[in-house]
Lab assay of single mutants.
Amino acid sequence: KFNKERVIAIGEIMRLPNLNSLQVVAFINSLRDDPSQSANLLAEAKKLNDAQAP
């Protein structure tokens, strides 16, 4: 279950337009470290993406 959620979360994070490459890598590394947190990490990535919108 967590592996599928992690793959989906990674794909979504990679498509967030307002994150820089270091932020994307940090979120992906966090997902690798704890796949059970996929939903929480994706939500945090989306919040950061929205906050950094031009």
Rank of each mutant, 00 (worst) to 15 (best):
D33K: 13
Q23P: 00
N49Y: 01
N49A: 03
P17S: 09
L16A: 01
V24Y: 03
K4C: 15
K46R: 12
N40Q: 11
K1M: 13
A43F: 09
R15A: 07
L31N: 00
K46N: 05
S36I: 06
S36L: 08
D33L: 14
L16C: 02
N29F: 15
N29Q: 10
G11F: 14
D33P: 02
R15S: 07
N49F: 02
A26V: 11
R15H: 05
L41Q: 04
A53M: 08
D50R: 12
P17Y: 06
D50L: 12
A53F: 07
N3C: 15
I13A: 01
R32M: 15
A53V: 08
I8F: 12
N49M: 03
K1Y: 11
F27P: 00
L22C: 13
V25R: 14
A45S: 02
L42V: 11
R6P: 13
S21Y: 12
A45G: 01
V25N: 08
R15C: 10
L41C: 07
L41G: 01
F27C: 02
R32D: 15
N18D: 02
R15F: 03
S38Y: 15
L16G: 01
S30D: 05
K47Q: 10
L41P: 00
R15T: 06
N40S: 13
K46F: 09
R32Y: 14
E12S: 09
D50I: 09
L48M: 07
Q23K: 01
L19G: 01
N49I: 02
L48P: 00
P54I: 10
P35K: 04
F2D: 12
A9Y: 09
I13P: 00
K1Q: 15
K47T: 11
K4T: 12
Q52A: 05
K47F: 07
L19F: 02
V24S: 03
E44L: 12
P35N: 05
I13R: 01
S30C: 09
L42H: 02
V7K: 14
Q52L: 05
A9F: 15
L48F: 04
Q37D: 06
L48N: 02
L19Y: 00
I8W: 11
S30L: 14
P54C: 14
F27G: 00
A39L: 13
S36W: 07
E5V: 06
S38H: 15
I10Y: 04
L41N: 02
L22S: 10
L48Y: 04
A26Q: 10
M14L: 09
A26W: 13
R32L: 14
F2C: 15
S38G: 04
L42T: 05
A45I: 02
N18T: 01
P54G: 11
L22Y: 13
L16R: 00
F2R: 11
N29C: 15
K1I: 14
Q52C: 12
S30M: 13
E12D: 06
A9P: 01
A53K: 11
N29T: 08
A45C: 02
R32W: 15
E5L: 13
N49K: 01
D34M: 08
K1R: 12
R32C: 15
K46H: 07
P35R: 04
K47R: 11
A51H: 07
I13S: 00
I28G: 01
R32P: 04
P54H: 09
N40T: 12
F2Q: 13
P35E: 05
L41Y: 10
E44P: 01
N3F: 09
A53E: 07
L19M: 02
A9T: 09
L19H: 00
N29A: 13
L42R: 04
S21F: 13
N40L: 12
L16D: 00
I13D: 00
N20R: 12
L48D: 01
V24W: 03
M14N: 04
S36F: 09
P35Y: 07
N40P: 06
K46S: 04
K46W: 08
G11Y: 14
V24M: 06
S36N: 06
N20F: 12
E12Y: 14
V7M: 13
A39V: 07
K47Y: 06
A43L: 10
S36M: 08
E44I: 13
R6I: 15
K1D: 15
M14S: 05
N3D: 15
I10N: 02
K4P: 15
L42P: 00
E44D: 04
P17F: 10
R6N: 14
A26K: 08
Q23W: 03
S21I: 12
A39K: 14
N29Y: 09
S21V: 11
V25Y: 13
N29M: 14
L31D: 00
E12K: 14
L42A: 03
I10P: 01
K47G: 05
K4A: 09
D50Y: 08
E44N: 07
P17K: 13
N18P: 00
V7F: 14
D33H: 12
V24L: 08
A43R: 09
R32G: 12
P35M: 11
P54R: 08
V25A: 11
I8R: 12
D33A: 13
A26N: 07
Q23T: 02
V7Q: 14
E5M: 13
E44K: 13
L16H: 02
N20S: 12
E5D: 13
D33V: 13
I28V: 05
D33E: 09
L42M: 05
A45E: 00
N29K: 11
I13L: 07
K46P: 01
A45H: 01
V24G: 01
F2N: 13
A9E: 03
F27I: 05
Q23G: 01
G11T: 08
N18A: 03
V25F: 14
L41R: 06
I13M: 04
S36T: 07
L48K: 03
S38F: 14
L31I: 12
D33W: 10
S38K: 04
A39Q: 08
N18H: 12
L48W: 05
A45P: 01
N18G: 03
